[in-house]
Nucleic acid binder design. Sequence first.
RNA 1: GCGCCCGUAGCUCAGUGGAUAGAGCAGCUGCCUUCUAAGCAGUCGGUCGCAGGUUCGAGUCCUGCCGGGCGCACCA
Length: 549
Amino acid sequence: MTPADLAAAVLDAVRDAVEAGELHVGVPDDAVIERPRNREHGDYATNIALRLAKAAGRPPREVAESIAARLRQRQGIAAADVAGPGFLNVTLDSAAQGGLVATIAEQGADYGRTNALAGQRINLEFVSANPTGELHLAGARWAAVGDAMARLLRASGAEVGTEYYFNDAGSQVERFGRSVYAVAMGRPVDEDGYRGEYIHDIARMVLAEHPALLERPADEAVEVFTRDGIDAMFTLIKNSLERFGVHFDVFFNERDLHTSGRLEQTVQRLRESGHVYEGDGAMWLRTTDYGDDKDRVIIRRDGAPTYFAADLAYYLDKRERGFDRVVIILGADHHGYVGRMRALVCCLGEDPDVTLEIPIGQMVTAQGSVLSKRAGNVVTLDLLIDTVGADAGRYAMVRSSMDSAIDIDLDLWASRTNDNPVFYVQYAHARIASLLRNAAELGVDRGEVGAAQLALLDSEREGDLLGVLGEFPGVVTAAAELRAPHRVARYLEKLAGTYHRFYDDCRILPRGDEEPTPNAVPRLWLCEATRVVLANGLGLLGVSAPDRM
RNA sequence: GCGCCCGUAGCUCAGUGGAUAGAGCAGCUGCCUUCUAAGCAGUCGGUCGCAGGUUCGAGUCCUGCCGGGCGCACCA
């Protein structure tokens, strides 16, 4: 019996009580089922009576008793007791508890998948770093978090499109082109230009394609250095993301918004909205109508659209491609964008509470700085991968809440010790895989899960492990709904710890010449179920689940 | 000045209004002739920044204050 099954049973009990006239309340949509910290409080606890008491107009303990009486008659439930102010503590019988192992073994890679977000079409944009430089730590964090979030949303039944907005128009790009040109000519880069070793690489790459480029007039050469330089930069960025295991469904070019007429259409639509006015030679949008702290320029005095105009056109493009929710992961250094974007969306006549969502992530440093003493430069995604590997890099980025600023300890994440959380979790998986190999060598065949005596899994440590395994689908759903992938990482650490304690306490395979105990087969299935959940969870984070370490 | 985020054990951080606030690390004491010791057990450690408020119940929600981070362009 899974917690979800129990929740359904609790709601059935409420429904019965209502129909019998014992309770006068509406039957709620869901019941919160918790694993109590104190195991004397049973296998599971629910606060449903506390939540219904006020509406029922009766003391919580009486409400709880009504529900408990019906729960006790259900198969699989060994006890249902009212405790404290009105908690309902439930103990499962060991067969129902062990049955979870069969559920997990049968569902395999599907265990943890739900339809909690079924029907939602979500566009998820992340990273979207300018193509004027390499991806650094912030890009790494949003790549890891965004990719994990996409996997979580999909596992919860949503239809998800991931996108990287490639900002290949505007003044920063021109500045980049001039910088590459200056480097190629052996001249100093402008005060406001881009520096760094990668600019030299880009210059070499462009020159390799156009050997005679430096003999052309400066403005022609700059144009080529800009266009081809941006393309080369983008190739480097994509390669880095590939090494990190992050894939995007769409790389969207800002330039296309300009050339396709989408931008003009958007401006026209804004004009018709009645929120537009002229001032100082520019075209403004009255975003203060919707709570922005100042109005925003849409078309600059020189006739060029601002990036707001492009962002809005991009938003509309996503909506017209059928996405009913536009999610954009941004770093805290861009959080000022949120209020503006919401106001812009309002000006289009849409409700940002429904169609727009902008999770803000806090800053990330390594060794206390965004600079690397080793490289004498910003810490790039490539440096992170070279130093700690893609698995540890992704895990480090995704194990903390987005709301927390984090500092990556490169020595810790590169270490192969139990201080390193990703090794702790991966080790549990490898340990199980090794155990299952040994079982096969010893000729201990665990057979079909349906034939295993799973009710034998009734010791304390086995119960603890079953309880944690049962939490997984709820953790995935909560992580998806709350846009909080770190919950999966924390859960995996808890699961790994619970498994190691079980392993330490419960002998599984026979030693020496002994015969296998009756516990061997059910315990092997419990190990396999744990392995499946570890693999599924690591998969949601884009981290590998090794069979050997 | 205004806005967003953070403040929980010595350190790094979990904690979707519920029962006695948790984990890892660091410290101390133990466990390998036996399935991976990259592991486990025990112990030490807290006015959940401060002060009010809402609630049967607040680390969690509201208000104010203190401290830190990040923003507040006709750059993106």
